[in-house]
Design a protein around this nucleic acid. Structure first.
Lengths: 336, 336
DNA sequence: CTGTTAGCGCTTTCAG
DNA sequence: CTGAAAGCGCTAACAG
């Protein structure tokens, strides 16, 4: 039964001081090549591996970042699934691992941000947390944080968000120009800030074109094909435009159009503000806004790691979506 | 500038011994209700939170489990995205968080399994790791592990896998019975064990029905619609059966069928061994095997946590997929 | 650049 | 149940 080597053993074997071993391991102080090699050799010979807890107890560094998710969120959504993967990739790229917390108890989640409470150098948090006063009361004694989404008010916390408002505004305007003023929005859960931003963009564009939006915005809580079909059947006529929150809802609109004998793209327009279904699984191909959740996660991680390694500097990020016009809004393209 | 409370402060405030505080916090020894309350109150008043590193250094427990992913794996695959989410949900359910490691260096990944190398109580590892001899050489000094996928040979490590072989065998047999012997498999990357298992199942069923499989198995490395269309066009005739690795490839087969003037379900059969596209986005609806990656991850986590908390006990798991026959294999249903 | 030493904050032991 | 004390294994400060 061989014992596990510790830093003392390595020092002894290499014939150097304990601190020298520590210095070559952490790289925080220069050590001559000769000694460095001796130390490294000794480490190999003894199959030495530093202890995480012990080094963390002194250095307070773990090379781990956390992603905090409140379990009221539906983590099965494509958004989260993509986000987690993107964050993981980017974190790994910088030599960090990603620790996922998923809890219904926000207090627990927030407490995890305290220095030393969890083995993390920093954390990615979702925007609702920012409103929590507890977060304010621990400004000084918490780890680095970056917020995902739009935080309300002023905070000394960096954030990353997608510019939903301007995206929807742009889309709405170009659709009105190509198809006219009979335009509708089938939005998702209005409690989500993303829905609020989207609706605001829609309203702004309509206002500019003298369109009264009452009766023009629907809320689909399920985000399902059924909902899309149901709402579309209520309003669909020639030259109508329907903007949907996602691809599934759009597929319902397609079904409604078929039922009404209207040709998508030619008679009516359909645009999805986000979709996890490939646009060419639709006939005619669906126009949509590319939800770049990938860069969303990546930029957030970059911001966080920069803050961990170089200290805080105010530098939040607003990302633009790419708008893809396919055959379901063909008049827009033909206009150009 | 208030200082952060430590266990000594709590003890002082509660008027008890340091060890008593520790005992109520860890729950490892009985403490009278009276004292327990005093301690808990003191914790609240002082806003005390135990230090992760310090308690880990003594107790060697973190309530964190890891998922190790080699970065040669394409983590964007639906499999991984679902797996991560399922593991996270299940881990949280038991009060654990999930730490994700994603690295190209397998040695580093394996070293992470050593006791104390990382703040983890156990780890989920992918099957390729198991073949690594380094893993064997550290049996005694590693954390608890559960393998995801089929490990070769005998190991004293529990694993969870999906029974792909029998699933494909069953599907193949019932398709032959309903449509005849002109059957094909468009498989995915043959280096993946899942592909091997699937091909084996296909071969077994064919052998039993006196079918020579040469020229009947295609390998689609891209798993794309294009590939499905390409291969299907080579072999598609009336009464042909094509089993595909996924839904995208199946959509290519649908396209090929249309080009040939063959009606899916009636003239030919299409079956997807897995698909991330909802089957009703296909017309006619696609038959498929439900890839239950969700229970896959959950069972693995359950196994791991049981091992962490109750010690190792040989109890691996083989999961069955549910086979869903829709309109694209309608003769199978009509046969019944 | 080296080597000693003092912690880091908690758990555990053991005699009272 | 208490209280003192001995670690856990490493980092960091400081005198050489």
């Amino acid at each position: 039964m061989k014992k596990v080597a510790k830093i003392t053993d390595v020092a002894e074997r290499a014939g150097v001081a304990k601190s020298t071993v520590s210095n070559v391991l952490t790289g925080r102080k220069f050590v001559s090549d000769e000694l460095r090699k001796k130390v490294l050799d000794a480490c190999n010979e003894l199959d030495f591996h530093p202890d995480f807890y012990a080094s963390g107890l002194s250095s307070r560094r773990s090379n781990i970042i956390a992603l905090l998710i409140e379990s009221t969120e539906d983590i099965e959504r494509p958004f989260y699934r993509q986000l987690i993967v993107s964050c993981l990739k980017e974190a790994s790229h910088f030599g960090y691992s990603l620790l996922l917390y998923y809890n219904s108890d926000r207090v627990k989640l927030i407490n995890t941000l305290r220095q030393g409470m969890a083995p993390i150098d920093g954390a990615l948090i979702m925007s609702p947390f920012v409103y929590d006063e507890r977060l304010k009361h621990m400004e000084s004694e918490r780890v680095s944080c970056v917020v995902l989404g739009r935080p309300g008010g002023e905070h000394d916390i960096n954030y990353v968000d997608i510019d939903n408002l301007n995206m929807v505004k742009t889309v709405t305007e170009s659709l009105i120009k190509a198809y006219g003023k009979d335009i509708y929005l089938i939005n998702s859960d209005s409690r989500m800030t993303i829905s609020q931003d989207r609706e605001a963009g829609f309203e702004e564009a309509c206002a500019r074109n003298g369109i009264d939006t009452s009766g023009r915005v629907f809320e689909s809580l399920t985000g399902s094909k059924t909902d899309g079909e149901k709402f579309a059947l209520q309003v669909l006529r020639k030259d109508a435009v329907i903007i949907t929150a996602n691809g599934l809802v759009a597929s319902g609109v397609y079904a409604a159009a078929a039922a009404r004998g209207l040709e998508v793209g030619k008679d009516i327009a359909v645009f999805a503000l986000g979709t996890s279904l490939p646009s060419d699984t639709f006939t005619p191909s669906l126009s949509y806004a590319e939800q770049n959740y990938d860069v969303f996660g990546r930029r957030a991680v970059q911001l966080l790691i920069s803050e961990i390694e170089n200290g805080f500097k105010k530098e939040s990020v607003l990302l633009e979506n790419r708008i893809i016009h396919n055959m379901s809004t063909r008049r827009v393209v033909e206009n150009d």
